[in-house]
């Protein structure tokens, strides 16, 4: 049923154009043969993609970002699953407070989180270490996973776990064979969302990296604030393609809207 009139259709097209414009521009600029930001490009050239290969800085930063996102998303998922089971499956004193604590990184301005982590890590000499970065990223992305896993846990039919228990399954077996498979879409969706969030994180990370652990967004940010050459556009384009691929994968797997709302159903 499409009950949108002509005005709505026009609005929809303009809105979509607005959303796509900056991304299309970045993709377009990355193919320029010139040495400056130019759109539309005067020709098609892979010059600035080849330039990435000559810049080990960007490649190393991308590698660190991938490792960091993988480690942080995994740590956060391992912590969030039991926490979501606790919050979603039982009623106890302090439950609401617990949930508020785990969601609080969404409420505190990121710049405040950044300096808090900087202050803490530098006191213990952990500033710029991979372990420190992983722990801080894990905290920032835990709310995203927790929300998705929690939605999956609360939608769970508790009697399935009870049925398994009555058939002789122990707690761990119930979790592994019944609960985990049932919440798996939420867990995978949460992991991917957390991975992307960590991979793209700038505001907190900019405070707590050192030159040897600089992540891709931080490298790109400092590059943009210093010079304006199309190199950063070609690097951006690669990350856009990467995000797009993940996005389509997630949409097929879980539904993009569900992933980002953290609720609702898809048939």
């Amino acid at each position: 049923m499409n009950r949108n009139g002509a005005f709505s259709k026009a609005f929809n097209i303009l809105f979509c154009a607005f959303m796509l414009a900056p991304i299309v521009v970045v993709l377009g600029v990355s193919f320029t043969p010139e040495g400056f930001l130019e759109f539309p490009p005067s020709g098609i050239s892979l010059r600035w993609y080849e330039a990435i290969l000559d810049n080990p800085d960007f490649i190393q930063a991308a590698w660190i970002s991938l490792q960091l996102a993988f480690a942080a998303a995994t740590v956060a998922t391992l912590l969030a699953i039991p926490a979501a089971l606790a919050i979603g499956q039982s009623r106890f004193r302090g439950r609401d407070a617990l949930q508020a604590i785990f969601l609080s990184p969404l409420m505190v301005p990121t710049v405040v989180l950044g300096i808090a982590f900087l202050r803490f890590l530098s006191l213990f000499g952990l500033n710029g270490t991979f372990a420190g970065l992983t722990a801080c990223h894990a905290i920032i992305i835990t709310p995203f996973i927790l929300r998705l896993v929690l939605a999956a846990v609360t939608g769970l039919d508790m009697s399935a776990a009870r049925a398994a228990e009555s058939l002789g399954a122990g707690r761990w077996t119930v979790f592994r064979r019944i609960t985990l498979p049932a919440i798996l879409p939420g867990v995978v969706g949460g992991w991917v969302l957390a991975f992307i969030t960590s991979f793209d994180e700038l505001t907190v990370t900019v405070f707590i990296v050192n030159p040897s652990t600089t992540t891709l967004p931080v490298r790109m940010f400092s590059h943009i604030t210093q010079t304006t050459d199309p190199l950063v556009a070609s690097v951006s384009s690669v990350t856009v393609i990467f995000s797009l691929a993940l996005m389509i994968l997630v949409d097929r797997l879980y539904g993009l809207d569900r992933l980002l709302i953290g609720e609702g159903k898809k048939a």
Binding site: V24, V25, L37, D200, P217, M220, A233, L244
Partner: peptide, 23 residues
């Protein structure tokens, strides 16, 4: 349309801002 409207959330703010700087 969901992909177009919501998808940019999954693209780095740095990249999107770069696009606006070019525009």
């Amino acid at each position: 349309v969901v992909l177009i409207v919501i998808g940019p959330l999954l693209i780095s703010v740095v990249v999107r801002t770069l696009g606006w700087a070019i525009l």
